[in-house]
Amino acid sequence: MQNNDSLIIAGKSYQSRLLVGTGKYKDLDETRNAVEASGAEIITIAVRRSNIGQSPDEPNLLDVLPMDRYTLLPNTAGCYNVEDAVRTCRMARELLDGHDLVKLEVLGNEKTLFPDTIATIEAAEILVKDDFKVMVYTNDDPIIAKRLEEIGCVAVMPLAAPIGSGLGIRNPYNILEIIENARVPIIVDAGVGTASDAAIAMELGCDGVLMNTAIAAAKDPVLMASAMKKGIQAGREAFLAGRMPRKRYASASSPIDGTFF
């Protein structure tokens, strides 16, 4: 692997191209072990109401995944309009001492969790003006992706397939089109199911992959986290190496010259 092959987001350099979510795990121990096994440096979190009056000694996510070790990426999951998404980002910034990197998602439909791209654009405009560094979840639409880049988002994150579906990259040519036209990192966010899906995303030339359910819903999440780390690395190296062209017919690997039969 090239030593200088780092992922740069908003001026900060990362060695891992795998970004992971922290939802859906059995408990905080499993969350920590899976995140560690994944090698991820950027981890998403959600912002939700505190449990008032319930077990004050209950451990917190940030106790097991400390802010000084990971780059936290608070999300706007569950937001179906511009106002809720912007409000969530502002709460996250206050919660994390002025931390301004956020994952914006404005959802449009409960069954598919497909993004409302029009509301996403509107929210991104507000957040960029408010000095947030916005990593934005969007559809695999090259026109919308470019628009989000032009607004000033620091990374554009098209889905591979619906969130939590594990269907893999459903539209590789759109993802490729987005990558080829981009000047900011393109990170496939959502929809990968297993390590080969992650490798395919990286082979297309994605700058990274963000996933949660593919690891958390595996029978052995910690082992799957390790598999994903390798899938991402393999895919990245294959992309950098440049694959052979596809051909319709065979091409012998052993020379014809010198045969004695």
Partner: peptide
């Protein structure tokens, strides 16, 4: 946070208290 000492709530205030939890 810098105003926690001085900010007084009024009757009927709608207060939200949030924290970080696991999410994707």
């Amino acid at each position: 946070r810098s105003a926690f000492e001085t900010h007084s709530f009024k009757p009927g205030d709608q207060i939200e208290i949030v924290q970080a939890i696991g999410g994707g």
